[in-house]
Design a binder for these strands. Structure first.
Lengths: 291, 291
DNA sequence: TCAACTTGATACCTACTGAGTATTAATTGA
DNA sequence: TCAATTAATACTCAGTAGGTATCAAGTTGA
């Protein structure tokens, strides 16, 4: 069987006349008769009652007509969806992100994406900066929101958000001034650090802030998750310096003090693979970047 | 597009290897590559990511694979159903019947049909004998249950049920004996008759019964519907003689007296068109006749 | 009643397209 | 650098869809 067979069959079923159907199909009548007979032979069923003068659908023919219509509708829906997928308004995009992104730009971006392309399904994966770089190379995610600067051989990163750092102190600590002098007062307190996988650039900035304030932090704990840092601070194990957006989204008993007078900022970048990407990813990147 | 394209596409999608897919399809690799490229060009979409060494489905390819699978499943279900329709175990049969048939043999027959062929849908149409004969010729019904004898040029009728006649009297009449003598006592009462469309043979039998009893009925009303006869009798307009099965199925205040000692019987026959009929009709007739 | 017309089926030929073979191009691995 | 792998390309062949001519059977109308 062939889609041609079904198409020809439907034409005959609609006209109940081989000659007229052939004309509508822009073919001659004899090949049409032959194709219909082939179809009947293959299905082992008479599709038409012919009485040398009139053509009528058999019950099997009527059934096949309905089903053929469904099949062609299905096919044209598939064609249409493929076109929409090609345009990038239908489909799926896998997005990696560091936790902080969910507390600044990511929610707005997802709302924009959803209103522009309601049939694009965004799969979100919270991953460290390092894991995202790997995940893009393996194709596990299409785009990532990472902490920069970081080594991204073969990938492209574009800065999308900058924010100051904040001191984060256990609730029982004395309040501290948001300046180099204020920080220096904490020099002997234990410092909770995040690991390099969270973003090497971030660590470097924090160390730079301390260095400019005239001390090196006394690192007692190091965690791979940014929110673990805050939890450890809450437990009173020490203080830390984190991007300011970390204070959003948690309800922990700690004190955040946004630092002033430092040029160091925490940079969030969108990262994606070099070379051609799918239309969905291009659409998404356009929304992220061109605004 | 062509079902072949989809079939080939699915083979490549399943193997992610043109050479292996071609082998499974029993064709050489080059035509397979060409067919896939044709499909991609026609759909305007890349279905596979090829990197000279590896083949992977794109998101559009993954979508098309799922949908192709559905389409082939649909097609094979259609094939299967057509086969079942051909065997006569799936489909529809249009059955005409006179009201009385529903009170004797028809319910049992429908139960038998349903248990033998649960996917056969019986469309029931209560029609007079005359209307059924026309309806068979126009193809409106496949088989009919009619009152015979009757002229059925070009059709075949087979007797399926015989029953005696019954007197039907208004409740206020005196009881009457079920014999020729008893009937004769009613000779001067008004007689409610059914029309010839209800079955000419029936009328002739009734008139024959009266004639053998020594009188001609004084016909005051004639209706085309058998159950109207009984309703008119209930209203006290007169008495009638009807097939005994008419007494079933109504709850009217009339008296039925089954006649005895007459050779006349009301005959119910199944009637159908000469020549080949669908498997469903053949199955149904086999159940009606071979038992 | 018979010729003209309709209409689907058949016979036969042509041409397009799908399949095969041989080869190329490009990448991978030893 | 060479052999191996694998998809793509070039070219040829053949099967099948489509065309034309005709037939067969039924309908219509003078």
């Amino acid at each position: 069987m062939n889609l041609r067979h079904l198409k020809y069959f439907m034409a005959v079923a609609e006209n109940l006349h081989f000659g007229k159907a052939a004309k509508k199909l822009f073919i001659a009548q004899p090949p049409l008769s032959r194709q219909i007979r082939q179809l009947e032979e293959e299905l082992g069923v008479m599709l038409f009652d012919r009485d040398k003068r009139h053509v009528a659908l058999t019950s099997q023919g009527a059934f096949l007509y309905d089903e053929s219509q469904k099949i062609f509708n299905h096919l044209s829906a598939v064609r249409k969806t493929l076109g929409l997928m090609h345009q990038g308004v239908v489909g799926q995009i896998n997005i990696g992100y560091v936790g902080a992104a969910m507390h600044c730009i990511l929610p707005d971006l997802l709302v924009k994406l959803n209103s522009a392309c309601p049939d694009v399904n965004a799969q979100l994966l919270e991953l460290s900066t390092e894991s995202q770089i790997q995940a893009i190379q393996t194709g596990q995610i299409d785009v990532g929101f990472i902490r920069t600067p970081v080594d991204i051989a073969g990938l492209i990163a574009r800065s999308v958000y900058r924010e100051p750092f904040s001191l984060v102190l256990p609730a029982e600590y004395e309040p501290v001034e948001a300046t180099a002098a204020g920080i220096r007062a904490l020099a002997n307190e234990p410092f909770i650090s995040f690991a390099r996988v969270c973003g090497p650039g971030l660590i470097d900035s924090v160390l730079s802030i301390c260095s400019k304030s005239g001390f090196a932090p006394r690192i007692v704990h190091e965690t791979s998750q940014m929110n673990s840092v805050v939890r450890l601070v809450e437990s009173g194990l020490g203080y830390s310096i984190v991007p300011s957006s970390v204070k959003n989204g948690y309800d922990l008993k700690v004190t955040f003090v946004e630092l002033a007078g430092f040029e160091e900022t925490a940079e969030l970048s969108v990262v994606y693979a070099k070379g051609e990407s799918t239309a969905i990813v291009q659409n998404f990147l356009a929304q992220v970047l061109h605004e």
